[in-house]
Nucleic acid binder design. Structure first.
Length: 831
RNA sequence: GGGGAUGUGGCGGAACGGUAGACGCACAGGACUUAAAAUCCUGGGAGCUAAAAGCUCGUGUGGGUUCGAUUCCCACCGUCCCCACCA
């Protein structure tokens, strides 16, 4: 018998599978399409890490299982190669991103991904920095522009001084840049936005209809952040102007002792009285310079000298400007209720403002009382509890035209522009001449942005020019702006000299539609083919990390909805099923270069083979929890594969015509258990079941028949594709039946699952009274009413009447009977 | 501050409300070997007991529901994750 040599086996089958196109799926003629997607990697310089193997291994194991179940599985792979991450790495290593990407994608694909034993269809790989791909990314931008979903607006935006670009709201975590952790500052800039907020309601509601990990849905729900409340207008004393505020607690309006405007608020300076306007101006200037984090440190602010009238009481309240109020949420102004809002409370304390308690139940001494209670000091509304008050007072507001009920979202429009080099140029052209005339590309039948034109489709892609000095300049424009040849372009309308948009788009736009491109890679004249798309999308199973719960997954949903509303596709959710896998850590911490605890998968593939690595990772624990990578434990799985190898090759010719009952029962149970577990991605327990069978089978070596070996190998094959194929061949199945991966998932025969005796213990009032042995198939689990039973008769009755349970036996009522498969049955009765 | 998840041997983890600890790691004893490695076999929650049998206690803590709770409910403690001046 040969020694188990996973490296030799891997190389042999990799070549053979590739040559024979064993896993090629015919997309056009597939009968049962199953789109098995996993999040594609960005090709970093460090190479694939073990977390990728975890994600791809699990997903591929599932895909292989689906294949055995008779589905035509399409499992594509590609590279998210545009973007800041690649560009920063290129800067660091002093290479050009284009050269870098060529090198890294090659390494990822040839030296790593192809070793995993996955079903990847490399004829359809997608590389987002490839002009064939980003041509269509640009095309999608234009479609959105024409639908009025891509707009240019001047707004305070997040600027990362280190990455030297603006960022989307989603890419700022607690005031810091998601990539480099620098503190972000606000800048007022004109930028391109996607109007994702148009879809806030749909993005939220559709979550009910899709089968996603609960945790992921929850993160999205929180991010969208719907809150119901009211807009209320407070007239300014001695002026026709009003200040509009948003509040979720209109019931607390009697406690509104002052108003606060964000420094960005348009009225902030305008309403300030002469005496205060200089202080206000200084304050606004100062808060503009501060980072978001600095702004959130202390409750600073200045009085404007102006007053509002509370529409409910007509009492005057002072108006302040303070940067704890955000310019971007609601209307950028609030009514402050210090007794019942902690932030207002702190501000009031600091500035010596009045605090009036209007909700009973809490004491406003050291902190605000935020909960609910009965209204006091609230005129005609006294005595109502908070919920009632919100309803009646909201109605009152609408009736008296003080304002209206409204809904606000935390979700912001998606800022698409990036002042960087390594991305698809935004395909827009600005013509100053046309702008003067009010001409421009129409969006939804009207010119929204005079002077702006989409690049005509025939001119796509707008190629990213080669630029030696591609490093970001930090002047609020992309390095592309330094290339006169690139910037200068003829106006598509008037033909005069115009200029190109020089910003590139956010990387997340590249990845927000790549799943549409995979099945359509051969179509060079369209982004995606209608027919193929209809056949293969939405994606049947998507697996990836929860770190993308907001950004990638939210953007993909939005792009899909937008394309649906343009009637380019006929579904609005891209991923019917999404599962987030857990994080693989090492030595108790997240893997990172600085910690020096990064696991290189190649080391382990070299030592134990890819089968052992992927199987080990799936064996660590529940797939959604991840776990700690252990050098030792992987050897255990390697040993297991060795045992399988020896067991099967050691059977020789001694296999029986038919397997023993014991083995039959075991293999049938294994098929059932492994199938159920694979379906719900419980890889760890499926593997445990296979090991259990292996242990048992080792003790009954001469009870095997061909059919049992066959089933055993098929069940193991999604986990260990190389090893099982080799054994399959060596045992003579290959010639006869073709690849193990082309077999059908075995059907478990119910007679072997059920025909077994169980021991029954009968307890009466908790005391053991009797035991008996009953054939398993004759009992069924049930529970019923609440009285007495002649248990021996009842068991017989049960055996005969199957699932029906009688409530009375011999004049006594059944209390409760419970059957536990393979375990002890307690029949508990009252006397 | 808000939201969520989670807590079981030395370790990773199993367990439709029904024999807690499957499977694996590590460990110990044995077989093979001159010896070791590899491999194979055996063992194991803790305590009482010389040992076996047996008994007692055991799933973060305290309550509750139930004939029966690791599982369901409530409170608390610990750990982890997401969001965070979002009114």
């Amino acid at each position: 018998m040969d020694r188990y040599d996973p490296i030799v086996i891997e190389q042999k089958w990799r070549k053979r599978w590739e040559d024979e196109k064993t896993f090629k799926t015919d997309l056009k003629n597939a009968k049962k399409p199953f789109y098995n997607l996993m999040m594609f990697p960005y090709p970093s310089g460090e190479g694939l890490h073990v977390g990728h193997v975890y994600a791809f291994g699990g997903s591929d194991t599932f895909g292989r299982f689906k294949r055995l179940q008779g589905y035509d599985v399409f499992e594509p792979m590609g590279f998210d190669s545009f973007g800041i991450h690649s560009e920063n790495y290129a800067i660091k290593t002093k290479t050009h991103p284009k050269d870098l990407i060529e090198k890294t994608t090659g390494y990822f694909r040839e030296k790593q991904l192809k070793r995993l034993g996955a079903l990847f269809d490399w004829d359809r790989q997608v590389i987002t920095s490839d002009p064939d791909y980003y041509k269509w990314t640009q095309w999608i931008f234009i479609q959105l522009f024409k639908a009025g979903l891509a707009v240019r607006k001047k707004a305070p935006v997040n600027w990362c001084p280190s990455c030297k670009t603006v960022l989307a709201d989603e890419q700022v975590i607690s005031g810091r840049c998601e990539r480099c952790n620098s503190e972000v500052v606000q800048k007022e800039l004109a930028q391109w936005f996607f109007r994702i907020t148009e879809y806030a309601e749909k993005l939220l509601n559709n979550l009910e209809t899709i089968d996603w990990s609960q945790s992921t849905k929850l993160i999205q729900r929180n991010w969208i952040g719907r809150s119901e409340g009211a807009e209320i207008d407070f007239p300014i004393k001695g002026s026709r102007l009003k200040i509009r505020v948003f509040t979720t607690r209109p019931d607390t309006i009697y406690g509104a002792t002052f108003m606060v405007l964000a420094p960005e608020h348009e009225l902030a300076l305008k309403i300030s009285s002469a005496k205060f306007s200089e202080a206000v101006r200084d304050y606004i200037a100062q808060s503009k310079k501060a980072t978001e984090l600095e702004r959130s440190q202390a409750k600073t602010g200045v009085f404007t000298g102006a007053y509002c009238l509370n529409p409910f009481t007509n009492k005057q309240v002072p108006i302040w400007v303070a940067d704890y109020v955000l310019g971007i949420y609601g209307s950028g102004a609030i009514m402050a209720v210090p007794a019942h809002d902690q932030r207002d409370f702190e501000f009031a304390k600091r500035q010596g403002l009045k605090i009036v308690k209007i909700v009973s139940g809490g004491v406003a001494q050291e902190k605000a009382y935020v909960g609910e209670g009965k209204l006091v000091n609230s005129g005609q509304f006294n005595g109502l509890n908070s919920q009632e008050a919100i309803d009646t007072m909201s109605d009152y507001i609408e009736k008296n035209k003080f304002g209206r009920k409204t809904v606000n979202y935390h979700l912001r429009d998606w800022l698409i522009s990036r002042q960087r080099y390594w991305g698809p140029p935004i395909p827009m052209i600005f013509c100053a001449l046309c702008a003067k005339k009010g001409d421009g590309e129409k969006a939804k039948d009207r010119v929204v942005h005079p002077g702006w034109y989409a690049v005509p489709e025939k001119d796509l892609p707008v190629r990213l020019p080669h630029l030696e000095n591609y490093q970001p300049k930090g002047r609020g424009v992309s390095p592309l702006a330094t290339m006169p040849d690139f910037v200068s372009v003829k106006c598509p309308k008037c033909g005069k000299t115009a200029r190109r948009e020089t910003d590139v788009s956010d990387t997340f736009l590249d990845s927000s539609w790549y799943f549409l491109r995979y099945p359509s890679t051969e179509f060079k004249t369209k982004a995606f083919d209608q027919k193929i798309t209809k056949k293969w999308l939405p994606v049947n199973s998507y697996i990836g990390g929860n770190e993308h719960a907001v950004m990638h997954l939210l953007y993909s949903r939005f792009i899909t909805m937008a394309l649906k509303s343009l009637r380019l596709i006929d579904f609005e959710e891209p991923f019917n099923k999404f599962r987030a896998h857990g994080l693989i850590i090492h030595k108790g911490a997240k893997m990172s270069k600085s910690r020096g605890n990064v696991v290189n998968p190649n080391d382990y593939m070299d030592a134990y083979g890819p089968d052992a690595l992927r199987m080990y990772l799936l064996f660590i624990g529940p797939y959604d929890l991840g776990g700690d990578f252990s050098d030792r434990a992987i050897a255990g799985v390697y040993r297991f594969l060795n045992r399988v190898w020896k067991l099967l090759l050691g059977l020789g010719k001694g296999t029986q015509v038919s397997a023993s009952d014991k083995l039959n029962r075991a293999i049938n149970r294994l098929v059932l258990k492994a199938g159920e577990d694979l379906e719900s991605l419980k890889f760890n327990t499926a593997i445990a079941a296979i090991m259990e069978f292996t242990n048992l089978a080792s003790k009954h070596k001469n009870e095997f028949d061909r059919g049992t070996i066959e089933k055993y190998l098929i069940v193991l094959s999604p986990f260990a594709p190389f090893t099982t194929e080799e054994l399959w061949e060596r045992l003579g199945f290959l010639k006869e039946k073709g690849s193990v991966h082309h077999q059908a998932w075995p059907i478990s025969e119910s007679k072997y699952l059920e025909a077994e005796n169980v021991t029954i213990a009968v307890q009466i009032n908790g005391k053991l009274r009797d035991t008996m042995v009953v054939e398993r198939s004759k009992i069924d689990r049930f529970a019923t009413g609440d009285h007495f039973v002649d248990y021996k008769r009842e068991i017989e009755t049960l055996a005969l009447s199957s699932k029906k349970v009688k409530k009375h036996v011999n004049g006594r009522k059944v209390r409760r009977v419970i059957y536990v498969p393979e375990k002890v049955l307690n029949i508990v009765v009252d006397v």
